[in-house]
Structure formats: structure tokens, C-alpha cells
Design a binder for these strands. Structure first.
Length: 889
RNA sequence: GGGCGUUUAGCUCAGUUGGUAGAGCGUCUCCCUUACAAGGAGAGGGUCGGGGGUUCAAGUCCCUCAACGCCCACCA
């Protein structure tokens, strides 16, 4: 297709498909571990295999891609490593749902068959979301794609588990955990959400046993308050505050659990708040984390009365009529029974926070069970230090506090999950003796059986920066113990670990970022990345979180179809503030990026269509006109700020700067001025060279944000083979010093246009203008340029100042326009008076400063500036006065 | 209970070391001038949430109050 046939509307769809294929075919995304160039690397936050691309990914992937493309162009050997997460619970849920539809359960299949089935599903979907990322223009290296359950990652998981265990940092124990009765698994603290709900506080009377062994009812009663009456059969004590005079005498006596009749001691513990409820608290160690601690302090064995489904146990502690009841039904019946037997004294409304499973919103049941934990404190210490001493920086900085606060109060991490899909815990039990061995392989499959639990999904993602890169060869580089896989990939680890930047949302700082830091430091001795760039979350136009259930999601692929990928990327990028504010979006916002892409397209079309006869030589510095120098200066400044902003992760500012430079400076001013230069034979060639140069460099600057359209145009410019592999511009030190003069020209033109508009003189009417310069300094370099504007602005220039004329003042010069035709005299007079008022107000406020001696001595340059402005105002006022009297003539 | 964020033009938001406020969209006026009507030119619009303080000078620094949002903790 010839340049002249390029469509006037940019065809994003066709261009993007073609260009992405060009990059893939040219293998431009693939990193070379043997390169001598300095490295820049990132790992993708692995999306869940069950995930579907949403706006959050679009933003996260776009930002990473911008960095990858920038550093690739800036001379770094760049690796952006993609992959996906096996997402334990989520994936298992999907497959179990399929099974249910077939009338089966996972237990019908058995573990082995179920896993086969899940692998089948996974293999089918594993890469779907990364394939979708192609539409985003993602330049990650698919030859290095990883999956958290694949060979290398699994090997690393086992290695890490065994080493932590041997170091005493992984332990197994019976503790209270957050149990999800629906998922049938323990979940970690961070996977538990709390929601405030209305509930009740029940006050129940527990009879006291008589002092001298008197029978039930003989010794009065103690009244406790609880939100969970159904757990009463698991009570092991009643606790009161040791300083609470109400109960002082009761400490050490014995109370009797209503309905079941078991005897429990009354103990004293500081944990109890005298002022809450009745000041007496029932202690149920098996079903409440705080009670568990109290129980431990007082050596009271927990009694478990709810099972893993959330039903009352059929045990001796629970009266038979409640056996097997669901926890809520049990509560109802127990309360009825208490009421009937007069043990229930009062019911108060009470709001409290209820823990819920993040994944299925089922109310969490704190449950006593055998689980595996990571001892976090020793691991947290170096992870705190790495952030405090600056080896790891958070951008924006405020997230550092957030991270440190959490780390400094870290609690042990429950890592076992009662699922089948995931990394099975590498612990083996002897079939007869029960003896436990923790090892990477089963020591003797005949006699040992592996622990049936799997690891929390975040355990493997915590290793992601190094498990994906061939970690496993020991520090001395010896193959001893390392798998073949690790050996093969070790060069990646050497070249690209630690990674440079991690890009993610603040919602997974605790889940993921913190764990990568602890694990990275523990196992590689190095922080896994030096900068954590935290961006905001995408929200809908009302500021609500996007979710499928609310139906307020926007599909990135649909938006790309409608507006184009580069448009989507540009819009998203422009909304990224340095502070990482959440981003509110609606469909229409992407018109911003689309319009910009179209502007780029059409301006480029103009340049391309006007390059006939141009050569490959650089522009002639000596022959540059004022606008040439100006646009080159502006380009140079834009290069400087773009690089600086890239270093500082001010990505949104880059987008705004480039938008402004391209649209306002290049299109609206330079190209318009260049049109008249091209018409002059003597200036044509050099102008073409400048146009070509500026477009070339602008495409380079914009490429990280808008990769497809820039690649397309750059290739049409025929200055190189592939923009993706071209150099990122470096700024020149020397300035061409044209800004001030050009501003003057702009002032003249604006003044003129303003006059036309306000006097209602159409651009089709030719105007004569006269410029009254205050001194020759202005005149010499600019006269020519004003003349050159003649065609564009439809003016003639020069002559004598007639009587009736309008004028505008620019930096001491006056543009005078004779008013031969008709104008609206009153309207013009009113306009001028309004201007006078404005000027007077400004002068008033400036005068105060001017007379301020300390301002004059503290900031002489600023004072001088102010003084100059006051002079300018006086000139303008004079001009307006003159105009007014001339109009009145 | 502790911490963080936000409050600037009709709407959505920028505003890096303190120096008389900017953008996009929307509004009004004019223009289909062969790069672009997804465009061009011009205009209007803000006592920067309230109050106090520091300073010659505060959207910007300090204190305080208010509203909204988020995170952490989880007194039964």
C-alpha cells in the first residue's frame, strides 16, 4: 500500500494483529541469558489458571510491558517472565462443580483420578489468560512460561519445605485455625475477611457448686455473656478479671454447665474485660482463638464439640438431643432449651465482626486441628531489614509502612490445606509406627504414606521469582542435588535473579509480596527485587470495586475491539498517578486514548506524505529556522522528562507529557508552521528532515505505552527494522534556545485570533495587521516569521496605523488591526472594560508584593519578575485605553 | 481501637522541592482551510472541604474539625 492510500482513520485491529505477529515471528520478546548487556527482569504476578482477563490484569500487564519495552530499548537485556498459578481452592472448586453436574463427587473418583481430571482441565486452560494478554500487546517471553505446579516450581517447593523443616521453621501442631466448613479446609489469617453483622449477646446463668460439695443449685450462679451459646458444651472454665470485685470470691469455685451438667472451674485471667457483658467469660479453647490462649495459660485441655462440617459432635459432652445438628440449628435449639429451663437471663442486640472465607463467604469456624505452620518471626526479621535499609523500595513509599507494620506483628502462617489440588506436603508417616519423615521423596513407599494435605497456594507463589529461574543448583554452582531442570535453567537464575521490579496492586502485599521477600532472602540471600511498584485498583465509574456479581465489570478484550489496544493502554496509563490512587473508569474514558491514537495516525500520515525527496541525512543545524529549533528543544526536554519519570515510576506523567508534546506542540504548532516552510524551496529539505526526525523520536518515546501504532508508523518511516529493538532517545546537552522567541510568536498569533473571534471577523476575511515593536531586539528575528504566518492566518502585513483600529499587546509589542469593516462597537467596548478590570485587580495584588522589602531581598529574581509583570500590565492598560478612545471616535 | 488515603472548574482528576491554579470530558461561539470533524480556532468556568498557625508569600508545611473510602486488630 502506498503512503497516499493510508486510511484517514486508524485501523487499530488490523495493525495490532499484524504488528504483534511481526514481534512474535522476530522473537523480540525472548531474553538471552548469555548476553553481556546489563539485565532488567520482572516476573509476572501469575494469574490464576481459573482466571479470566479483567481490567486489573490489563493495568498490571500494561505497566509491566511499558517497563519491559522501555528497558529493552534503553539497552538492557530484558526478561519479563510469564506464568500462571495453580490456584488450589479455586481450581478444585471448578472441577468439583463439573463433577457435581455429572452427579459425582471427588471422593467417588478418589485422589488419583481426581488429580488426573484436574490436570486435564488445567492443561486446557493453563495458557488461556496469557493468550488473552497478547491482545494487550504484552511482550513477555513465552518460551519461559511457568506454572506453579510444573517441574521446576514443584522441585523448589519441596526443597524449601524440607529445608525450613530442618531449620525448625516449619512445624506441625494442634492449633485453632480458621476453618471453612464449606471448603472443608483450614485457611490462613489473610484469607479471612471480616464483616460487621448484627447478632446477639446471650446472658446465661451457670449454677455454682455448693461450697462444701453441695448439690446443683445450692450455691447461687454466675452469669456469663456469649455470642455463641452453642459452644457451651465445650467450655472448660469461666474466667473473670482478677481485679473484678464482683467476682473476687468466686475465683477458685466450681460452676456447672447448664443442660450438660459438667463441672468447670472459675479462674482469673487479665484477658477478661470487666466492663464487657457481665464481666464473666466462658472459656471454650477448641472453638475460639482467644479462649485457646487462655486455656493454654491455665493448662485446661480443649474439648471439641463441633465437627469439620460445622455440626454438633455426637460425643459424650453434648446432650444427645443436639447430636449432629448444624451449628445454627443447634444454637436455636440450645437457646430454646436454656430459656425453657430458666438459664437464659437476657438477650441483647450486639454487633460484631464475623470472619468469612474469602473465597466462598461461608462463616469461618475457629476450629482446633492438626495443621502445618511456618514460624514467621525469624524469617520476618531480615525481610524487615531489607526494606528498612533500602535494598527494597516501595513506590509509592507509603506502602512501606503498611508492609513493616504487618511484618513487625507477624503471626505464624498456616500453610496446610485440606485439598487435593496443590503441592502435597512432603511428609511421610510410617504405616505402623506413625513415625514421620520429612523429605523430598518418600523414603519407602511400601511402608510410608504421604501426608494428605497440600500447601497453601501462596507458598509456591512466594518462591516465584527464583523457582521459575532454575534455582536449585547450590551456591557453589555444583550440580550436587540439583535436578536436571534446575541445571538447564541455571543460567537464567544467574543472569536475571534477583529481578529488578515487581509490579502489583496493594491488595496482595501481605499475601504475596511479603512472602516473596521472606523466602527470597532466606533461600537466595538476596532480595528478590529492588523495587515494588504498587499501582491503584481499577474501579467502576462510581468508585465501586468491579466484580462479576455486581455486573459492573468491563472486559478489556471488548474495549480493545472497540477502541484499540494502544488506546486502552494510553488511557489506563494516563490515569496512573504517582500516589497510586485507585482508578475509576467507564467505557467512554477510552475515547481519550482512541482520539490520541487517531491523531498520531493522521499527523504521521501528513509527515509521511510530505517526505518526497528527503534523504537519510540528519538535519542541518546551521539552517534551522526558529520553529525548527523550538520543536527540537521541546523534543529534547520531553526526552529528558520521559527518562526521569520512567526512573521514578511517574508513568501517568509520561503519558500526559507525550500527549501534550505531540498534540499541542508538534501538531498544532510545528506542523502548521512547517507547512509554510515546505512551501519555500530553500527551506523544504531541512524541514522535511526535522519532521522526520521528530516523528521518529516521538514514536520511540511513545512506543512503551502505545507499542503497535508506533511500530507501524516507525516502519513506514523506513529508519530501521523494528522499533521494539531500536534505541530509546537520549537527550542532548545543548539547547537551541528558541523557547522565548517562539512564545512571542505564539502570543502574536493568539492575540490575532482572539481579535478575530471577539470582533467576529471570519478567517475568510483578510486582515491587515501592523506590529508596533518596543525595540529592534524583537523585530529582527521575528519579522520574517510573522510574515510567514500570512497564509495560514489569512493576513497581510505592514502599513500605517489607521484611526479606528483594535489591538492586542504581547510582551510590550502591539498588534494593530485596522477595522475597516463593521464591528459591534458596544460589545467590543464592554470586552475591553472587562479586561481593564481584570488587569487592575492583578496589579493591585502585585503592588503589595512589590513594596515588600523582605520579598525583594529574599527572592530578588522573583521580585524582578513581578516588577516586569507590573510594567507589562501598565502597557496593556495603555493600549486598551487607546483602543477605547479610538473606538469612540 | 490503631493506621492510611481522599476532599481543587459542571463531571473525572493532575499539581515534583512553598512563588497570584492545569488537563480530559462537558458548556458557549466560529470553522467541513486537501494530515485528522475521533478535527481546527477562540471563550467561559475554581475564595483549592471548614477553622487556626508558620512565612514576605500556603492548594503545597504544621495543628484542629468534618465528610467519604480503605487497611489492620477482632472484647466474648
Amino acid at each position: 500500500m502506498s503512503i497516499k492510500d493510508l486510511p484517514t482513520v486508524y485501523d487499530a485491529r488490523a495493525t495490532e494483529e499484524k504488528i504483534y505477529k511481526f514481534w512474535e515471528d522476530g522473537r523480540y520478546f525472548e531474553a538471552d541469558a548469555s548476553s553481556k548487556k546489563p539485565s532488567y527482569s520482572m516476573v509476572i504476578p501469575p494469574p490464576n489458571v481459573t482466571g479470566v482477563l479483567h481490567m486489573g490484569h490489563a493495568l498490571d500487564e500494561t505497566l509491566q510491558d511499558i517497563l519491559a519495552r522501555y528497558y529493552r530499548m534503553a539497552g538492557f537485556e530484558t526478561l519479563w517472565l510469564p506464568g500462571t498459578d495453580h490456584a488450589g481452592i479455586a481450581t478444585q472448586n471448578v472441577v468439583e462443580k463439573q463433577l457435581r453436574e455429572e452427579g459425582l463427587s471427588r471422593c467417588d473418583l478418589g485422589r488419583e483420578k481426581f488429580l488426573e481430571r484436574t490436570w486435564e482441565w488445567t492443561n486446557e486452560h493453563k495458557s488461556a489468560i496469557l493468550d488473552q494478554c497478547k491482545r494487550l500487546g504484552a511482550s513477555f517471553d513465552r518460551t519461559r512460561e511457568r506454572f506453579t505446579l510444573d517441574e521446576g516450581c514443584s522441585e523448589a517447593v519441596k526443597e524449601v519445605f524440607v529445608r525450613l523443616y530442618e531449620k525448625g521453621l516449619i512445624y506441625k501442631g494442634t492449633y485453632i485455625v480458621n476453618w471453612c466448613p464449606r471448603c472443608q479446609s483450614a485457611i490462613s489469617d489473610v484469607e479471612t475477611d471480616y464483616e460487621t453483622k448484627g447478632g446477639h449477646l446471650w446472658e446465661i446463668s451457670y449454677p455454682l457448686k455448693g461450697e462444701n460439695g453441695a448439690s446443683i443449685g445450692g450455691g447461687g450462679a454466675i452469669i456469663i455473656a456469649t455470642t455463641r451459646p452453642e459452644t457451651m458444651f465445650g467450655d472448660v472454665a469461666i474466667a473473670v478479671n482478677p481485679d473484678d470485685f464482683k467476682y473476687k470470691d468466686l475465683i477458685g469455685r466450681t460452676a456447672i454447665i447448664p443442660l450438660s451438667g459438667r463441672e468447670i472451674p472459675i479462674i482469673a485471667d487479665d484477658y477478661v474485660d470487666k466492663n464487657f457483658g457481665t464481666g464473666a467469660l466462658k472459656i471454650t479453647p477448641a472453638h475460639d482463638p482467644n479462649d485457646f490462649e487462655v486455656g493454654k495459660r491455665h493448662n485446661l485441655a480443649p474439648i471439641k464439640i463441633l465437627d469439620e462440617q460445622g455440626r454438633m459432635c455426637a460425643c459424650g459432652e453434648v446432650p444427645p438431643e443436639f447430636h449432629g445438628l448444624d451449628r445454627y440449628e443447634a444454637r436455636k435449639q440450645i437457646v430454646d432449651s436454656l430459656k425453657y429451663k430458666n438459664f437464659l437471663l437476657r438477650i441483647k442486640d450486639h454487633e460484631h465482626n464475623i470472619g468469612q472465607c474469602q473465597r466462598c463467604s461461608t462463616t469461618i469456624e475457629p476450629l482446633l486441628s492438626d495443621q502445618w505452620f511456618v514460624k514467621m518471626e525469624p524469617l520476618a526479621k531480615p525481610a524487615i531489614a531489607a526494606v528498612k535499609d533500602g535494598r527494597i523500595t516501595f513506590v509509592p513509599e507509603r506502602w512501606e509502612k503498611n508492609y513493616l507494620g504487618w511484618m513487625e506483628n507477624i503471626r505464624d502462617w498456616c500453610i496446610s490445606r485440606q485439598l487435593w489440588w496443590g503441592h502435597q506436603i512432603p511428609a511421610y508417616y510410617h504405616n505402623q509406627t506413625g513415625e514421620m519423615v520429612v523429605a523430598k521423596e518418600n523414603p519407602d513407599p511400601q511402608n510410608y504414606t504421604q501426608d494428605s494435605d497440600v500447601l497453601d497456594t501462596w507458598f509456591s507463589s512466594g518462591l516465584w521469582p527464583f523457582s521459575t529461574m532454575g534455582w536449585g543448583v547450590n551456591e557453589k554452582g555444583s550440580p550436587n542435588g540439583a535436578t536436571e531442570w534446575a541445571m538447564k535453567n541455571a543460567p537464567d537464575f544467574k543472569k536475571f535473579y534477583p529481578t529488578t521490579t515487581l509490579v502489583t496492586g496493594f491488595d496482595i502485599i501481605f499475601f504475596w509480596v511479603a512472602r516473596m521477600i521472606t523466602m527470597g532472602l532466606e533461600f537466595t540471600g538476596k532480595a528478590p527485587f529492588s523495587t515494588v511498584y504498587i499501582h491503584g485498583l481499577i474501579r467502576d465509574e462510581k468508585g465501586q470495586k468491579m466484580s462479576k456479581s455486581k455486573g459492573n465489570t468491563l472486559d478489556p478484550v471488548v474495549l480493545i475491539d472497540k477502541y484499540g489496544c494502544d488506546a486502552l493502554r494510553f488511557t489506563l496509563t494516563s490515569l496512573c498517578t504517582y500516589g497510586g490512587q485507585d482508578i475509576k473508569i467507564s467505557d467512554e474514558r477510552f475515547e481519550y486514548g482512541r482520539n490520541f491514537a487517531n491523531k498520531i495516525w493522521n499527523a504521521s500520515r501528513y509527515v509521511l506524505m510530505n517526505l518526497d525527496g528527503v534523504d537519510d541525512k540528519p538535519f542541518d543545524l546551521a539552517a534551522l529556522t526558529l520553529p525548527d529549533k523550538w520543536i527540537l528543544d521541546r523534543l529534547n526536554k520531553t526526552i529528558t522528562t520521559t527518562r526521569k519519570n520512567m526512573d521514578e515510576f511517574r508513568i501517568g506523567e509520561i503519558a500526559h507529557d507525550l500527549y501534550h508534546f505531540f498534540w499541542d506542540d508538534f501538531c498544532d504548532w510545528y506542523i502548521e508552521l512547517a507547512k509554510s516552510q515546505i512551501a519555500e524551496e530553500g527551506l523544504k529539505l531541512n524541514t522535511q528532515r526535522v519532521l522526520k526526525h521528530v516523528l521518529d523520536y516521538t514514536m520511540r518515546l511513545l512506543h512503551p505505552i502505545m507499542p503497535h501504532i508506533t511500530e507501524e508508523i516507525w516502519q513506514l518511516l523506513s529508519v530501521g527494522e523494528a522499533l521494539i529493538a531500536a534505541d530509546f532517545p537520549k537527550s542532548e546537552e545543548k539547547e537551541l534556545d528558541a523557547l522565548a522567541d517562539m512564545e512571542f510568536v505564539f502570543g502574536i498569533v493568539r492575540g490575532l485570533r482572539n481579535l478575530r473571534q471577539s470582533l467576529n471577523i471570519s478567517t475568510s476575511v483578510k486582515l491587515n495587521i501592523i506590529i508596533d515593536y518596543p525595540s529592534a531586539d524583537y523585530f529582527v528575528p521575528l519579522e520574517m516569521y510573522i510574515k510567514r504566518l500570512a497564509k495560514v492566518e489569512n493576513i497581510t502585513y505592514g502599513g500605517k496605523v489607521p484611526k479606528q483600529s483594535a489591538s492586542a499587546v504581547v510582551e510590550g509589542s502591539k498588534i494593530i488591526v485596522p477595522l475597516a469593516g463593521l464591528i459591534d462597537l458596544d460589545a467590543e467596548l464592554a470586552r475591553q472594560h472587562k479586561k481593564l478590570e481584570k488587569l487592575a485587580a492583578e496589579k493591585g495584588s502585585l503592588a503589595g508584593r512589590l513594596n515588600n522589602e523582605s520579598f525583594k531581598s529574599n527572592k530578588p529574581d522573583l521580585w524582578e519578575q513581578t516588577r516586569a509583570r507590573v510594567e507589562e500590565i501598565a502597557l496593556q492598560e495603555n493600549a486598551i485605553d487607546e483602543l477605547i478612545s479610538s473606538l469612540k471616535d
